[in-house]
Computed example of a mutant assay.
Amino acid sequence: MSITHWLSFAMASAVLLVIPGPTVLLVVSYALGHGRRFALATTGGVALGDLTSMTASMLGLGALLAASATGFTALKWAGALYLAYLGIKLWRTPVGDSQAPDTSMMHAGKVFAHAYAVTTLNPKSIVFFVAFVPQFIDMQAPLWPQMALFEATFVALAAINALGYALLAANARQAIRSGRVQRVVNRAGGAMLVGVGVLAATWRTASK
């Protein structure tokens, strides 16, 4: 594989990743609600989720989901319901006046699992990888080394993108001191997550 193939894939992936989707919205919501505390946990969950989805697509799961309307619909609804559940939880997150939201019941492992589940349970990502990756494969070179390099590149870029969104949102949160404002932010983020859950169940186009 030439450097041109790899650079084309990396540039296309970077452009696609910065477009907000369910995963980015989850990262931003956690950062706004809890600051930098869970930035690394959400980033790790996103990276592992992308690794799982991309590996599954490389192994043929994407083709299976594309061919099976029932399997695609079931996984799509599971992901949509999970997004709605997280949105409701964020809406109900308690806040204190002039204090950060109460995170005593949260821990990094749970946040990591949430980010991983939201990223992995998006069947459109799996189907998207099947349609996206082959465009950059050099048929004159060994197949699996190229796929491994593409997967590593995409996961690394996804992690950098998620961390960037988390840090930007966390920095914006530092300016928020009022519990009332924090409550509005949490409820707005929660409402958006529920909305994305509904859209995820109805959209046919791939989004990340």
Rank of each mutant, 00 (worst) to 15 (best):
L25K: 04
L143Q: 03
W6T: 10
S178R: 09
S13P: 02
L48K: 09
A31G: 15
G60N: 09
A152P: 01
W91I: 02
A31H: 00
A108Q: 13
R177D: 09
L26T: 13
P20K: 15
A31I: 05
K76S: 07
S57E: 11
M11N: 10
V28M: 10
E151L: 11
W203P: 00
G79A: 13
G62R: 03
F150D: 04
G71Y: 03
V194P: 04
H114I: 12
T4K: 14
A69C: 01
S53D: 15
S68G: 05
F128G: 09
A113W: 12
S98K: 08
R183I: 03
V118W: 10
A152D: 01
R177Y: 03
Q140C: 03
K76W: 05
T70Y: 00
M1H: 11
L83D: 05
T103W: 02
A152L: 15
A166P: 05
L149Y: 02
A162S: 13
G62C: 09
R92D: 07
A67F: 03
Y85A: 10
M11K: 06
T205W: 09
L90K: 07
V111C: 04
T43W: 06
M139C: 00
F150E: 09
L17V: 01
V28H: 09
N186K: 05
Q99E: 12
S29H: 08
T119A: 10
W144N: 12
K208W: 07
A172N: 00
P123R: 06
V130C: 06
L61H: 04
V24Q: 12
T93F: 01
F132S: 08
K110G: 14
P94E: 13
P142T: 12
T153M: 09
A113M: 11
T55S: 12
P22W: 08
A31K: 02
L59P: 00
L17G: 02
V184F: 11
A41L: 02
V118I: 08
V15E: 02
A78F: 05
A188V: 14
N186Q: 13
I176N: 05
A12H: 13
F132H: 09
R183K: 15
F154N: 04
A84Q: 02
E151F: 09
F112L: 15
V185W: 05
A131E: 08
L61M: 11
L51F: 15
S104A: 14
I137R: 08
Y165P: 00
R180A: 11
V196K: 15
T153K: 07
K89R: 13
K76T: 14
F112R: 08
I176H: 06
G35E: 05
A39C: 04
G190A: 08
D102I: 01
L81T: 01
P134N: 09
T103A: 14
A56W: 15
L7A: 13
I88N: 04
I137C: 07
G21F: 07
L157G: 05
L163A: 13
A156F: 14
P142I: 10
I126W: 01
G195C: 04
W77M: 14
V127Y: 03
P123K: 13
V95G: 06
K124S: 08
P142H: 09
A156R: 07
T153E: 07
Q140W: 04
M147L: 14
D138N: 14
